[in-house]
Amino acid sequence: MTGRVEDRREEWEGPVPVPTGATVPFWAGTLEGELRYQECECGHRQLYPRAVCTACGAEDPPFEASEGVGTIYTYTVCHVPGEPGFGDRVPYVVGAIDLAEGPRLLTLLDADPDDLEIGTAVGVTFWQVSEKAAIPVFVPE
């Protein structure tokens, strides 16, 4: 499954990811609406992307495409912006999403907090914030 990629370059005032090293394939995927995680030969799956497998230490574990669906492990509603650029977006929701493939991703949830609870099924969309990156944002399914 690929998620919708919305062009938010004009209005986005938050931090902009800079793809480097192990994160390059991840951010390349986001521009195509694909959420990628790493699956090592040892079977371990991880996200965010890293240069080594956190289970066995193997270098450059290969990327796989996630289905982009999961459930809310937990979430919080931010009324005080944590970063410059988030000020005009409060209240906004940050959640930890358990992906169907296993890894847990800390991410923005674009939803009315009243529509969310722990366990809510969510799917990924992307907000393109630069030429090189679109940030994953989850919405209720």
């Binding site: 492990y73 930890a96 991703l105 800390l106």
Partner: peptide
């Protein structure tokens, strides 16, 4: 766990 809150096995 390692350096991210989202990696906490149980929050």
């Amino acid at each position: 766990h390692r350096q991210d809150i989202s990696e906490m096995p149980d929050m």
